[in-house]
């Protein structure tokens, strides 16, 4: 018996016009989102070019800001930015590490989701609110700490010495105080990344450690922390990226001094973002172009730090790649 000679039905899917339009639209949106990043780099570079042509590579090594005579660069503000971010990490990493271990391992299990939400909320508090809190609440409390550090450790460590130490105002508005406030601002970022990685520590190895008679501390030290090492590094670097770009909180606290900050406890310092915020309204021509060049430096620097962090953190996560 022969089958009726019906031609075999074609089932290879051919997209309908609606499908094609849909895919085209969302792909277009993705490309647009992608191009925004490229545009940021391109426009900053184009607008920074006049200033960079004046200074050349000296833009990175000049510590003064005298655009009128063509002598300007970001060395001092870049140093201030890194110094404040470094102090911020000294605050944020220990607290963030401890808090993330506490949330992941020690906190009552039924409270953990709420604690995670609170950490996220803390990351969402606007930086200007942290700025107000830092200036009016933290600063008066930190000045005695600054003074104590300076008086007791200053003789041994010259960079902690402060001129005119009689008055409190010599200790106010310093890189140390700004760094501490920025540290509080980046703690939630650091905590949430670390906690996420710690909570993925394999149950089997935890239980093995406990079964061998290990204490909870042994589990943390021998299983959770080694497993989450990439999270510790990645979280710290993401925190660093946040701290580098922070503007208003730093602006409100520091008193701008355009020189390389050698004494973090002494009043006065400067950062790239604060420089841009201070001068943008009153600059024009080469000076304005210089600010854009400073912005470009900050942009590339934070990109570099965050790309490094992403590489480290992703190494600990399994594939999230769509085909």
């Amino acid at each position: 018996m022969t089958a009726a000679a019906t031609s075999r039905r074609e089932i290879a899917p051919s997209s309908t016009p609606a499908d094609k339009a849909f895919r085209g639209t969302v792909r277009g949106a993705a490309v647009l989102a992608l191009s925004v990043m490229g545009l940021i780099g391109v426009f900053l570079f184009l607008r920074a070019l006049p200033a960079l042509q004046v200074t050349g590579w000296r833009f990175l090594t000049t510590a003064e800001w005298l655009p009128g005579v063509g002598h300007f660069g970001v060395a001092a503000v870049l140093e201030g930015t890194i110094l404040i971010a470094g102090i911020a990490l000294l605050v944020a990493v220990p607290v963030g590490f401890g808090a993330s271990i506490w949330i992941a391992e020690y906190a009552p299990r039924h409270l953990r989701p709420a604690l995670v939400s609170l950490v996220d909320l803390m990351a969402a508090v606007p930086s200007i609110v942290y700025g107000l809190w830092g200036f009016f609440f933290v600063q008066p409390h930190l000045i005695p700490v600054s003074r104590w550090l300076s008086e007791n450790l200053g003789p041994a460590l010259p960079f902690l010495r402060v001129d005119n130490a009689e008055t409190d105002s010599s200790f106010a508005s310093s890189a140390f105080i700004a760094g501490c406030v920025v540290g509080v601002m980046v703690v939630p970022t650091v905590t949430s990344i670390m906690r996420e990685v710690f909570s993925q520590a394999p149950t089997g190895e935890r239980e093995a450690a406990l079964a061998l008679g290990g204490t909870q501390w042994a589990v943390v030290r021998r299983v959770v922390v080694p497993f989450g090492r990439s999270g510790i590094i990645g979280g710290s670097m993401l925190g660093l990226g946040r701290a580098l770009g922070e503007t208003v909180a730093v602006y409100l606290i520091i008193s701008p001094v355009f020189a390389v900050t050698t004494h973090p406890l002494q009043s006065g310092t400067h950062t790239i973002s604060a420089l841009i915020a201070t001068l943008s309204t009153e600059s024009s021509g080469v000076a304005l172009s210089g600010l854009l060049a400073a912005g470009l430096v900050l942009f590339l620097f934070t990109l570099l730090v965050n790309a490094g962090a992403a590489v480290v953190v992703n190494r600990s996560r399994s594939g999230q790649v769509t085909g």
Partner: peptide, 20 residues
Amino acid sequence: VIDAMSAVPGIVAGLFVFAV
């Protein structure tokens, strides 16, 4: 790139729009 974008400091975003 979207990940990198979340790391762009606010001041740089402002500067970019200002430049454009």
